[in-house]
């Protein structure tokens, strides 16, 4: 296991970016912080700047107006960074795929490591998705 992989083992810092979502996934992410799920016991926490992040969570469809901002935030992030698409919208466009303001699924804009589908995914699903991803990365 290299040093960089080791860094992803514990206490991930998460930056949350909503490209153009309906709020549901965002609230469910915040829900993870509160007493029932309490991800902070794993050392994970939401942080205010992407420059400190290990994980970038993206929710919502990427609209034409947010596309340059998403790219810029990805540029600013320290590499390696794990990008997780949360919900149906960043994965495929979901119900908004036919919109004139839709700039394409997230993986057409920035590289994505994991997809957690659902509208919205339950907090348990998000936890399980992150754990699955970390396990898969460990095996590499």
């Amino acid at each position: 296991m290299g040093f960089k992989d080791f860094c992803f083992k514990k206490s991930l810092w998460v930056f949350h970016l909503s490209a153009g979502s309906c709020n549901n996934c965002d609230i469910e992410i915040l829900d993870l912080l509160t007493p029932r799920y309490d991800i902070e016991r794993f050392g994970m926490k939401l942080i205010g700047s992407v420059r400190h992040a290990d994980v970038l969570l993206v929710t919502g469809i990427v609209t034409n107006k947010t596309k340059p901002r998403v790219l810029e935030i990805y540029e600013q992030a320290p590499k390696p960074i794990v990008v997780i698409a949360i919900g149906a919208c960043p994965c495929t466009g979901g119900i908004f795929a036919s919109s004139y303001n839709f700039a394409g699924p997230l993986d057409k804009v920035i590289p994505v490591n994991a997809y957690i589908p659902g509208c919205p995914p339950k907090p348990e699903a998000m936890l399980s998705g992150v754990v699955t991803l970390l396990k898969a990365m460990g095996k590499k």
Binding site: S18, S21, C22, I95, F96, S98, Y100
Partner: peptide
């Protein structure tokens, strides 16, 4: 930033389907 063109999408759905679009306006 968050303009998703929902009003336009609604015009391409049937009256029944619009329910599931509009509930995704805001979670």
């Amino acid at each position: 930033y968050n303009h998703r063109g929902i009003e336009k999408i609604c015009e391409s759905k049937t009256f029944e389907q619009v329910f599931y679009v509009v509930e995704r306006i805001c979670g």
